[in-house]
């Protein structure tokens, strides 16, 4: 071991203690050492709850649904509970539908209620498609993602899911 490595390790042991259990998060005391006594206990890296819509989400849903109130059914929205990075968040939406010429999903609108603008993407389906799609989206912060599905008969259904977007420690 070089001198630098040895003296580094010594310093580190003094400040952080030995790393006995790698599974645990840095303990409060250890991290106070790291943070050099700042008011560490107050930081919230993630917003625990999403705020009410602060963009045009409601208007977008209303105009898409043609004045109807979407029923919370038939739509399944898959998103990570915590996005590793908000710039690339995988999303899958699937809808219960027989997908026949008489009864099929026409359009599915994806909304993000905490982005600068609510609209994310609108999928268009035909009876020869399976009512399911996956893409990758940008989420500016912790917020609700909403999927609204419009059937060929004009009925509308929806689902929503909160995604926590981390403010990473190592954004560099």
């Amino acid at each position: 071991m070089t001198d630098a490595a040895a003296s580094y390790n010594l310093l580190f042991k003094i400040e952080l203690g030995e790393n006995k259990n790698m599974n645990n998060a840095i303990s409060r005391r250890q991290a106070f050492g790291l943070g050099a006594g700042v008011i560490v206990g107050l930081a919230l890296p993630l917003r625990p709850t999403a705020a009410l819509a602060k963009n045009d989400a409601e208007e977008a849903i209303k105009s898409f649904a043609g004045g109807k109130t979407p029923e919370k059914a038939k739509v399944k929205l898959e998103l990570p509970e915590i996005a590793e990075n908000g710039n690339t968040v995988p999303v899958t939406v699937s809808i219960e539908s027989p997908m026949t010429k008489d009864s099929y999903v026409k359009d599915v609108l994806i909304i993000a209620d905490g982005n600068p603008r609510a609209g994310v993407i609108t999928f268009h389906f035909s009876p020869s498609a399976v009512p399911e799609a996956n893409t990758r989206i940008r989420l500016a912060e912790t917020q609700n993602v909403v999927a609204v599905a419009k059937m060929n008969d004009g009925s509308v259904y929806m689902a929503s899911k909160e995604v926590k977007v981390t403010i990473g420690g190592c954004g560099g």
Partner: peptide, 9 residues
Amino acid sequence: LGFIGVAGV
């Protein structure tokens, strides 16, 4: 805080 927050940890 820089980038170390403990409650968050």
